[in-house]
Design a binder for these strands. Structure first.
Lengths: 221, 221
DNA sequence: GTATGTGAAAGTGTTCACAGCG
DNA sequence: CGCTGTGAACACTTTCACATAC
């Protein structure tokens, strides 16, 4: 049996994709826009992000060799490379939002999606009174049109902004319609299904901070 | 020298506090409200949260022994214990929001803070045109009143909803005013300071998902 | 019998430290 | 000579597996 020597591609830790690369991108974008710096070292980038220099070099090394020894990284080049890796280079991702209540409306009005290439192109609600109206310029549709609209509008990402009680069922419907990525604002942990899901719950974040606040309170006594 | 044998308290991993305990609490609250279950096993809880049973037992064991062998955990009792650990038992946390723009207004209208014991009791903006008006029943104040209001209103948590460009400086002002916990909606990574900070940026979450979406797209070709 | 609590083993992620390139 | 890229060492986290308690 002949063994072909494939380049030993090490597994990329999840946290690199899920947390750090997007943060690198965010920091570099800012540097680039401010136009202060043409090159950046792992040390510098680490300082602005509270990571070790080694961490940053290691993370980037999973995807290639972008730096120049003795010089650091070219900001523009690294930026482009990160956008490419994350699937953000020269393209737009279309999103469908479900649940046009207070939270849903706020999400539709959030100003940072579009400039980053994420566009909410459709909205859905189960309440007939809301269907047909427009929110942030987008017509609210009936849930029964979910599947068709997702195909027609070439939607790849779903946003869930419904109450906890209906969230799991809405996620199921999105998955049935072929959605593979969901941003979930409902306060539940969805059952594992087909789609990749990212949860947003500010209350959970507050609840972890109160743990530490409580500790400090007590140590004062 | 006499050695006192203190119980070997193992360090609690950060992720237990920062992620899992609040999720346990959220899931148990829901179970309790639905009233379906009086007891729950680590296996059951794990299934609803996509964690292993061992993980849950280990996490809880850092704080004591709450379960009964052969029976599992009493939902109500565990719920109370978790609330106690996280500093949520019979108390309210007061919060101050800075930045009454579109995002800030949406946060002030978010319906899940108050029922969980988190109350926005003051709002601040640097724009004189906004100062004096009310948003969601809360008067908007001048930034120069930050420190005094935080003392007077017994505020422990800050919420930052200003643009990236002023976020770091606002965080500094909150820290100067004695704030030890901040929920940061601005798209920056703050420099390490006195306060504990939790960041919320839905764009980062989307950007990690597109990485995987892109992979699937390519494997189809 | 059944499910917890927990040391020990396995697995995963981070830091070290230095060879090597610009 | 400075800073990257990277194996190797280290640190941390999760899972295993079983003695223990109800």
């Amino acid at each position: 049996m002949i063994k072909i020597n494939i380049k030993n591609t090490k597994r990329i830790p999840d946290i690199v994709i899920e947390e750090r690369l997007p943060k690198y991108l965010r920091a570099l974008s800012r540097m680039y826009e401010n136009g202060t710096l043409e090159r950046v070292s792992s040390e510098d980038l680490g300082k602005t992000l509270n990571y070790s220099a080694a961490q940053i070099r290691k993370d980037l090394s999973y995807f290639g060799r972008f730096g120049k020894q003795g010089q650091g990284y070219d900001v523009k080049k690294l930026l482009d490379r990160l956008r490419d890796i994350l699937g953000l280079q020269n393209r737009q991702w279309n999103m469908a939002l479900v649940g046009v209540g207070g939270l849903g409306k706020a999400i539709m009005g959030y100003g940072r999606f579009a400039p980053q290439g994420f566009k909410i192109v459709a909205a859905f609600d189960q309440d007939p009174a809301k269907v047909g109206k427009k929110v942030a310029g987008v017509p609210v549709r009936d849930m029964k049109d979910l599947k068709d609209t997702i195909k027609e509008e070439n939607i790849q990402i779903g946003i869930v902004a419904v109450p906890a009680s209906s969230a799991q069922s809405v996620i199921g419907k999105l998955e049935e319609a072929g959605i593979k990525a969901i941003l979930n604002y409902a306060p539940i942990t969805p059952q594992k299904g087909i789609a990749r899901i990212q949860d947003i719950d500010p209350v959970l974040k507050l609840q972890s901070m109160t743990y530490y606040l409580k500790q400090t309170e007590q140590s004062k006594k």
